[in-house]
């Protein structure tokens, strides 16, 4: 039972992170390899707002950090990625890689390389809860699962019914036609970057509240990428399925074979998927040929 819970928690973490990859890819065909780093920025922003005494409650600190993360995402597009529109896909990917390296350095300079515990700063207790017999879960993990479900529900509703969601889908399908129909492409792209960073930051904050925060959190972000690709890089529903596949194989293999496999498993599955079905379980095949 404990294994199932572990898979569920890890799957939620991956889902929450991988939707960020999907949103940006779906809308702008850019693969954001700085997503793990942007997620880390979100978590560190919470550390800063948690230290600010004048905010009062932990909820206010989390709220402010979330707003800041959204702003960071939009700024990344406006200041940097906007210049890469129209450049080759590869140049854009390399730019995100460079941005990731820049962020890694900047985070250590701003917040130091120590292991931080935002949860104790916010006075949030993290008791473990016995859900079933011999199967425990920490409170934050439980919240994490709930938040993931809520986030995906909100994203589905937004993409399906929202005015801006419609614009985002239209831009993703054909940017030129969308622009001719009066969609403000830069606004759509900026929004995609904002939402993506926002959801990533939510994941980063919850991970940091659960198990502390240092720069190794980036690796979790990178491991969520295979999840997005296995599901199909342009499919939100696929991201959930992909995350569960990745987390299940990771948890089971670590438990029964070798903990060292942890970093390699998601990428082994990624390779297998690229060989069998490169566009992922739920991705559209046409996307691949456009790359």
């Amino acid at each position: 039972m404990q294994i199932v819970l572990n898979i569920l928690v890890l799957g939620s973490i991956y889902s929450l992170i991988s939707c960020g990859y999907v949103i940006i890819y779906k809308v702008s065909r850019v693969l954001n390899l700085a997503h793990g780093e942007l997620m880390m920025v979100g978590a560190y922003l919470l550390l800063t707002t948690a230290s600010a005494g004048w905010l009062g409650s932990p909820l206010a600190a989390i709220g402010l950090a979330l707003v800041l993360s959204l702003t960071v995402g939009i700024l990344v597009y406006v200041l940097l990625m906007r210049r890469m529109t129209g450049e080759s896909v590869l140049a854009a990917v390399l730019t995100t890689i460079a941005l990731g390296i820049l962020i890694r350095g900047a985070v250590v300079l701003l917040w130091s390389a120590q292991h931080h515990y935002p949860a104790t700063k916010l006075h949030i207790a993290n008791p473990s809860i016995e859900l079933f017999q011999n199967a425990k879960l920490s409170l934050i993990s439980l919240i994490l699962i709930g938040v993931t479900v809520a986030t995906y529900a909100a994203l589905f509703a937004f993409m399906r019914f929202g005015r801006w969601g419609l614009r985002m889908r239209a831009t993703g399908q054909n940017a030129l036609l969308a622009a001719q129909r009066g969609v403000n492409l830069h606004a759509v792209y900026a929004l995609a970057w904002g939402i993506s960073t926002f959801t990533g930051a939510v994941a980063g904050m919850l991970i940091a509240l659960d198990s502390g925060l240092d720069s190794t959190i980036v690796m979790i972000g990178l491991k969520a990428f295979p999840a997005a690709l296995v599901g199909g890089l342009d499919s939100l529903a696929g991201a959930i399925i992909g995350s569960i596949i990745i987390s299940a194989s990771e948890v089971i293999l670590i438990q029964h074979f070798n903990p060292l496999l942890s970093d390699a498993v998601p990428f082994l599955i990624l390779i297998a998927m690229l060989v069998i079905r490169p566009w992922g379980l739920f991705g559209t095949r046409e996307e691949l040929d456009r790359v």
Binding site: M84, A98, L102, G105, V107, L109, S112, A113
Partner: peptide, 20 residues
Amino acid sequence: GSIFAVNYAAFGLVMIVFLV
């Protein structure tokens, strides 16, 4: 103590400048 971080940041920045 954080010279490696300065390296990372500068390196990322230089790469971005060249790409853009």
